[in-house]
Design a protein around this nucleic acid. Structure first.
Lengths: 219, 219
DNA sequence: ACTACGCCGACTGTAAACAGTCGACTTCCA
DNA sequence: TGGAAGTCGACTGTTTACAGTCGGCGTAGT
């Protein structure tokens, strides 16, 4: 039985709303829907083959994630980020991830934590010669893991609600600029800092990492 | 003309969705909808006199704010916070507000900033003998102002998306416990720290404030 | 020619209807 | 009497229809 259950579990149909959400997020962060573009509900619902009501729920969430901006009379458009906003986003991101790093330092199971992080970095290394998208994904996955391992659901949730904006920052700045932030070595430094258990050092390492990353993006 | 325009501006009908959102948030954070309670869409749409579609958009946002938890098959219930979650929420809150404090220290117009903050504290002092709700409102308004004054919209938005959880924490812990966190003096200390322009000191002051606040709530 | 009025199309806000699914209760058979 | 199958009700997921509002365009009146 155990051999056949796995494939059978595949028929968990995510709701249309979730699928629409994912599709729109991808379309926006990939630049298929360029910044400033007006989104017409009927148009999108036609494209995605879903009803407007379902679409609207997804749009509302994207709005709250900061990927969409509301204009007069509820008109939505793809948000446009300027350099200051990118710096602001990365400042908040740095605050969240430095909390994560500090928290991880004080965890009793720090050993397993750094192990998981090293695995995430290995995934980055494996993607180093892959497509740009793969590299971005593995990088974000590392940072998401950093937050997840703290066990602080609120922290993870806050970070994830920022993830869309982070992706937009990378895209807006130009993908090539973002690549320099995905050095495997720099990430190993972060894990090493956590491994020492020195919360102050870990925090400092993350803050510097984010400062550099933001600087690279807006340069 | 100027004399009559003001009252005429009153007919800005917020969308039903926003009204529903506000009503539900109040109902939850006031305890009218107790934690764990199942929310039935038809029931709520009847109560609020709106359609299910409109209601669902509001529910989706409350879900993302962490006030509602999704169960199997999309069933929503009012989230229940345990002590760990309250501590986690306050850890994230501390990270955000300490970023705010640090940012404010580096602002050139620090003079006006501390002035605005002092005004917010004056409002707290004025509410000190008012109802519990007034005291909570003025306290949260101070902290929201702290974030707003940074000019970092992302920071403000992240904080606001946490506000509902903060309110739930206060309510869940019992309102009387929360009152001890609203000391006017302790808030003046925060402003004083920012006034020195010493970012490290300001950060430390906020972190201690939040540590104490969380400890008071879960004690 | 210029302005003001009114019509038309597009789009969002809101409501109501339809479909599918799960749990509980009942009933029937062994 | 115990259990399994069937039935009913409630609820969510999704779709379709209706109402209101704003902007643009043409037209008539001056």
């Amino acid at each position: 039985m155990a051999g056949v259950t796995a494939p059978l579990l595949g028929l968990q149909k995510r709701s249309l709303r979730e699928q629409a959400l994912a599709a729109l997020r991808t379309a926006i962060t990939s630049g298929e829907l360029e910044p400033g573009r007006h989104l017409v509900e009927t148009e999108l619902s036609d494209m995605l083959q879903i009803s407007r009501g379902t679409l609207r729920e997804a749009l509302r969430q994207l709005e709250q994630e900061g990927l969409l901006a509301a204009g007069p009379r509820g008109r939505l458009s793809v948000r446009h980020l300027d350099e200051k906003e990118i710096r602001d986003i990365y400042a908040v991101r740095a605050a969240l991830e430095s909390l994560a790093a500090r928290t991880l330092c004080e965890l009793p199971e720090r050993q397993q934590v750094t192990e998981s992080l090293h695995k995430a970095i290995d995934a980055m290394a494996a993607a180093a010669n892959g497509t740009l998208e793969e590299r971005i994904e593995s990088d974000l996955e590392f940072h998401r893991t950093l937050c997840r391992l703290t066990g602080n659901e609120t922290l993870l949730h806050s970070w994830e609600s920022l993830e869309g904006s982070i992706r937009m920052s990378i895209m807006f700045a130009g993908l090539e600029k973002g690549v320099s932030n995905m050095s495997v070595d720099r990430h190993r430094d972060i894990v090493a800092a956590i491994d020492t258990g020195d919360a102050t050092l870990a925090r400092k390492t993350i803050l510097e990492h984010m400062d550099t990353a933001a600087a690279n993006l807006v340069s």
